[in-house]
């Protein structure tokens, strides 16, 4: 199944090369948000906000074909957490 993943702010640095805002991932049926985060090496220990199809989701949320997943880091202006090296 295919899921569109949109990343925001510092998380954009975790997109595959050549992608600026989003990418489409091919995932096994029943995959969960946490697997997307692992695939893209989005640090689990940094706070993040997950939105699935425009509504709040969680790392354990199950994904379905055609879903749009958005993941936001916290932003405070000034200093921002840097993306960890892949």
């Amino acid at each position: 199944m295919k899921v569109e993943v949109k990343l925001f702010a510092t998380f954009r640095e975790h997109l595959p090369p050549g992608h600026k805002e989003s990418c489409v991932l091919e995932l096994a049926e029943g995959a969960r948000v946490v697997e997307v985060m692992e695939t893209l090496r989005i640090p689990r220990d940094l706070p993040n906000m997950i939105l699935l199809n425009g509504r709040q989701g969680a790392p354990e949320s199950e994904l379905h074909h055609g879903d749009v997943l958005s993941i936001f880091p916290p932003l405070a202006g000034g200093l921002v957490p840097q993306a960890l090296p892949p």
Partner: peptide, 10 residues
């Protein structure tokens, strides 16, 4: 856990 941070451009 202290993430390294950068001065954000805007």
């Amino acid at each position: 856990l202290v993430p390294s941070c950068q001065e954000a451009g805007v």
